[in-house]
Simulated assay, not measured.
Amino acid sequence: MLLLIPGPVQTRPETRAAMAQDIAPWDNDFRPVYAEIREMVRDIAGGVPGEHATMPLQGCGHFILEAAIRTFVPAGGTVLVPHNGAYADRAIRLATEAGRQVVSMPCPDTEGVSPAAIGAALAANPSISHVVMVHNETGSGIINDPGAVGPVVRAAGRRMILDSVSAFGALPFALAAHPEVDALVFTSGKCLEALPGSGYAVARTDRLLDCAGNAGSWSFDLSDIYQQALRAGWGSIRFTPAVQSLAAFRVALDFFMAEGGQPARLARYRENARILHEGVRSLGLTPYLDWAHQGPVIVTVHQPADPAFALQPFVDALKRRGVLISNFYNTRAPSFRVGCIGAIGPEDMRQAVAAIGGALDELGVRDRAARMPAAA
């Protein structure tokens, strides 16, 4: 089965095989593995030894993002969340339920966040301490550029938390060039092509020290994770982790480096996205984003207007052809989405295009023009 979702992703057999062992996470033979992971991740993030450190946390992307918000934004503090997709909407809920105030900045879900709009929102509200921005929205596939937004945040004297859950390892970014970023967060099961189970925040060490006591949660306190590392060493683990997932992640990092790191991974994913974007257009379908705005992680496609189309039967027909995609959408217009990340390449994408065409034919979908949302 070809798994084409934005995470968990298709993985290599060697990566999966690393899970097939029993491991004691506190064993002295495993401590160096955990310490290596932290250093390798920091380096991929463009961090500086001593200035940045990797804070792992058990769980999914929502867990690590909530931990970053709780750690770096004081209780009752105010964050700006530019939202052009479902994951920014979720960031708003995470911040709100953590007791932080949220200034919401709605944006179209077909283009990236405007740095000028961020600057204007910060100027209008001096109480905002942080911008929480999603790097890549996996609903539409749009990219928000921290390289453009970061300097605006820095010039305004504010801080930033970057949700790079579905972008890290593929999209370029270097923490050393962005002192305004308190933390960049991501998970293991996306562009680094490992198994799910752990999240990571690559964070400024000075800020981790300054923010001790902010979190209001022992489990979600990144400052406490840092203090644990200082006390017991970088190979120490605070609570029981998804240790087999960590072992697989270490293997996946070796494959990442052998491929050529972030530039090579981005090139492969971008080619995957190009083949898919052009392929669905050749079938008479309409991609959700113009190619100029299309990111490399996922290609989202407008559902066809033909009444014969329904999402779950379409997903089922694709699965019969050996391709598995998400059976839901979270864009403003009805859509379906096809992942371009994971241990996959151009031939897999051509297989996916052929399967999409076959599934549409099986369902009798002839009118493939975009189905637009009903008027409010």
Rank of each mutant, 00 (worst) to 15 (best):
P172R: 13
P151R: 08
T138C: 14
N272T: 11
R207I: 00
V41N: 02
H83C: 09
S104Y: 02
G197N: 08
A167C: 14
V73L: 12
V152F: 04
S140D: 09
T331M: 02
N125W: 01
G364N: 13
Y34N: 11
H130R: 05
S114K: 13
S164D: 14
Q312M: 13
P151N: 11
G46M: 10
R12C: 06
A229C: 06
D89K: 13
M1L: 12
T110S: 08
A264G: 05
T54M: 05
A229G: 07
F72D: 04
D109G: 05
M133G: 06
Y87Q: 07
R337V: 00
G112F: 04
E51P: 02
Q312P: 11
S188L: 01
T300L: 01
W218V: 15
I44V: 15
D210V: 03
G169T: 12
G76Q: 02
C60G: 08
Q312I: 14
L208T: 03
A308E: 13
L3H: 10
N214D: 09
I23R: 11
Y200V: 11
R270N: 11
D306R: 09
S188Q: 05
L175K: 06
G169R: 08
V353C: 09
Q228A: 09
V202A: 01
G358W: 01
W26L: 03
S104C: 07
W291H: 08
P304R: 09
L285H: 08
I298L: 12
H52D: 13
G364T: 13
A67S: 14
R238A: 07
P126T: 02
P373H: 11
P115L: 09
I64L: 06
V33K: 03
A98P: 14
L324W: 10
N144F: 08
W234S: 06
I225S: 00
R154K: 15
H83R: 15
L276W: 06
G139H: 12
C211W: 06
Q21L: 04
